[in-house]
Simulated assay, not measured.
Amino acid sequence: MRFWYLFFAVSLLLPNCSNAVVKRHDIPAEKYLVENAPEFLIDMPHEGHGVLIASQWIVTAAHVIFYDYTGKSIKIAGESYTIESVTKHPDYIEPDESLFKGDAAPLMTFLASRSDIALIKLSSPVSGIAPVKIYQEDNEVGQIVTVFGRGATGNGLIGEDLSTKSLRKTHSFHNKIDGAKGNWLTYKFDSPPNSLPLEGMHGSGDSGGASVIFLDGEPYLAGLSSWQYWQGDLSKFKGGLYGATAYQVRLSVYKDWILGVLAS
């Protein structure tokens, strides 16, 4: 089990676990900094992020639940709240450690097949923060998303620098959704001149971070940072390079499951 967590913390960040984002090499890094992070972006107890979607509920990527968080304290806007319960999607399963050796294809197939989503219930409602609404349409392809995270930084030429994870500065970037199939939204980290002005890719430590579509200035949660596609030997994995494809948990697919858990 420890190898599983190490792989994600060191690689993708695969989804991602907690810090910033990987940026274009030709744009000043400070352009990606966020002065005031959205209050609905929550830091998980161990690593990674969650998103406040109701006064007493946080949605996150299931793989950032590293152990039993029940009864653990979580900080939201400077206040401490207690986690009452954690509900992982029934189609979320842990991988066998053998998948993290050799060719990446079996691991990629495994990651694509599962539901990497969990809901956290707080023992008391959060006050003073507006939860973000979930994007419920199925027309994500072609939409521009704004992605938030506090994980490892870097740029598309050299990839992510894992030593930057400890900085924990909030960054955001833009990308265009080019795939919406089943449980996943995907986008590609294009190199200039074919990239958006502030195009980027999630880094190690960004798992569970919010991918937001803005409609008339209002944010809607479309995805959660989850994993990054890789071909070849896993020992040579380097996250955040130009050409890489990111996978995001597709919230519109899970809206009925989310509403069911909240209602129960």
Results as ranks from 00 to 15, higher is better:
G243Q: 13
G205R: 02
K88Y: 04
S195V: 14
S123V: 14
Q143F: 02
Y135E: 03
L262C: 07
G128W: 06
P192G: 11
K31T: 15
A244C: 09
K238M: 14
V253E: 15
A9W: 01
D43A: 15
F3N: 06
A152G: 03
S124F: 08
M108Q: 12
Y254P: 00
W4A: 04
I144S: 06
I58T: 13
L111H: 00
W184L: 04
L198T: 06
I144V: 15
L234I: 15
H202T: 11
I134W: 02
D178N: 07
D26A: 15
E84T: 06
T186C: 03
S73T: 14
A180C: 05
S166F: 03
K72A: 10
A105G: 03
P197M: 05
R168T: 11
K88F: 04
D91M: 03
L241W: 12
V249K: 01
E30S: 12
M1W: 09
L12D: 04
Y92E: 02
D206L: 07
I117M: 04
G128N: 09
D233N: 15
S18C: 09
H202G: 10
G156P: 03
D96M: 03
R150T: 12
S235Y: 14
F8E: 02
I129N: 01
A246L: 07
D161V: 11
M201A: 10
V34Y: 02
D103Y: 06
Y67A: 06
A210G: 11
L13G: 09
A29G: 11
L234D: 10
N155H: 12
Y220L: 14
W257C: 12
S211V: 13
L107N: 07
G223W: 01
H174L: 06
D26V: 15
L198I: 08
R168D: 04
Y247I: 00
V132F: 03
P219W: 11
P219L: 14
G102M: 10
W57Q: 13
A20V: 09
W230P: 14
N175D: 07
A54C: 09
E97S: 09
